[in-house]
Nucleic acid binder design. Structure first.
Lengths: 203, 203
DNA sequence: TTTATTGTGATACGCTTGTATCATAACGGG
DNA sequence: CCCGTTATGATACAAGCGTATCACAATAAA
């Protein structure tokens, strides 16, 4: 087999260009030609690696998922050990809010995809339910762990509290995204809600 | 002046068609021709009443705002008097979640517009911050009123609690929208959070 | 060195889009 | 009655879109 160029590397480069264009012009307005120009390759190449526009869209979503997962994994790895349940939760909150530009872009695109998926059955809706569900499970188990270690009140319904925290996270996330309020305010309000679950009530 | 046809009525009819198309095909994919067909008028007519596509978009957003306001006004009017702060809040929650199809459509379009506005400076971002801010003020005053009437705990920071409730409302709203959870589950979880603020603690 | 396969460019096609143009029908005021 | 404004239809146009086609450069295997 000839002319072996690293397929995955090329795909990644094009996908990064895709993300940049999508952020700049809006996901709905992404054109294959614009992606090609942004990536510095020919239109044909984009076609070659992703076949069709729907293919690029699909790959874009998967790319975002992978990127988000690795971001979170790195964040957890940087956590000082041993990490309390509360500290881990807090890191999760900070990570889940669009604090820096990268995170902002990610949130915007994710939301764009969620909207897009509502009137396009090419891409599966499950990405937008499975992700939050997993996250909620994760939060619930962290809460449970916190209850066991005495950080949180013993009478918590961890499932419901996790659902509430997830809801808040999403709501505040979009609020920060549309610049209704700055990220640090959102974090403060989250801290208050988390404080309610603690054994040592602050307010 | 001749051939006087009710301008506003026509505009409204076209806007309703616009909304239907936007819900069906996605806001990003709305074409003037599709709106014309849906409204049963000629393309030229849509141009005549809205000049340009951006004009139609703008008008569409304003239409949604008006529709939402009147929906909420009617809801309040139907409230049994005298309405307790808690009952009013609860009505607000029920109204704010995408429970029926109309509300679902509204939420979807509103979210689409929010995403759209992030990469289009034709439509003002203020609609997406002013609305929630007003709502938050409203909730805060309801909470304050509830504190005064003894429904809610006296030591509440009503501003922060209002912010938290708004955040939850938005988060749960999108969760229901993407069918991550059904509306009644979201309402139950909201009830729990509201119970925390009450004088007579339930759980 | 040939050969088959993989990777890349140039370009064209058909379609849809928003917008513009032009004619003309309808109708109130003079 | 007629005139000028308002309202509506038919149609044209240039631009941009996704997709398809074809040629050909590059290279690993024979």
């Amino acid at each position: 087999m000839p002319r072996t160029v690293d397929h995955e590397e090329r795909r990644a480069a094009i996908l990064e260009a895709f993300v940049r264009v999508a952020v700049r012009e809006g996901l709905y307005a992404v054109a294959l030609r614009a992606v090609a120009v942004e990536a510095g390759v020919s239109l044909r190449l984009v076609q070659y690696y992703f076949e069709t526009k729907a293919g690029l869209m699909r790959a874009g979503l998967e790319f975002l998922e992978r990127q988000s997962n690795s971001r979170w994994a790195q964040r957890v790895a940087e956590l000082p050990r041993p990490a309390t349940a509360r500290a881990t939760l807090w890191a999760l909150f900070e990570e889940a809010l669009p604090t820096d530009k990268d995170s902002r872009d990610f949130h915007l695109l994710w939301m764009s995809y969620a909207v897009f998926a509502q009137s396009d059955d090419q891409i599966s809706h499950r990405a937008f339910t499975d992700g939050p569900n997993r996250l909620q499970q994760h939060i619930a188990s962290l809460l449970q762990q916190g209850v066991a270690s005495g950080e949180f009140r013993a009478d918590l319904d961890v499932e419901v509290e996790a659902a509430i925290l997830i809801g808040l996270l999403h709501g505040f996330g979009t609020a920060v995204l549309v610049e209704q309020k700055p990220a640090d305010v959102a974090l403060n309000q989250l801290r208050l809600q988390l404080g309610r679950l603690s054994c040592t009530r602050v307010a």
